[in-house]
Amino acid sequence: MSLSISLAINGRKHDVALDDPRVTLLDLLRERLDLPGTKKGCDRGQCGACTVLIDGRRINSCLTLAASLDGAEITTIEGLSDGEDLHPVQAAFIEHDAFQCGYCTPGQIMSAVGLIKEGMAGDDPERVRELMSGNICRCGAYQGITEAVLEAQRKLADREKPATGKDAA
């Protein structure tokens, strides 16, 4: 069989002719589109390493069949920074040492970006911990992750405030 889908990944349009309906979004990214930044930790939707944004929502890409995504907009870890400028979540993860081995990090960061967009955590570290609990970090970098999410959220909120004359200068 062959099934054609069209999807936008990190702002770039991809026309994909799938020769196999069993391909997940995760394996499509990693094995067929040369975007291996998204990681496979369990392939069962249990660890969160494969988290990407689909139409702005955080999703486990290992549980998502590629064939179901015709027309979708997908953001992966490779598409988050603005050229050399890191996204505030990425910068905060480095600053707060919010990773060790780095394998769960793409998923943690995409999940954090999704969470901040959802706006459900407020500035409560307990809520951040709860709402980041779909992403396992075996190295145990949770303290840094929580701090990084809160700091990035503050920075993003500051950015969205209307600029005063002074700030604009």
Binding site: R30, L35, T38, I77, S81, G102, T105
Partner: peptide, 18 residues
Amino acid sequence: SRRDGVLKVTGAATYAAD
């Protein structure tokens, strides 16, 4: 801060299966 930090937060750090 980690020298490999930028690679790890941008998905550019290469693990074996990549």
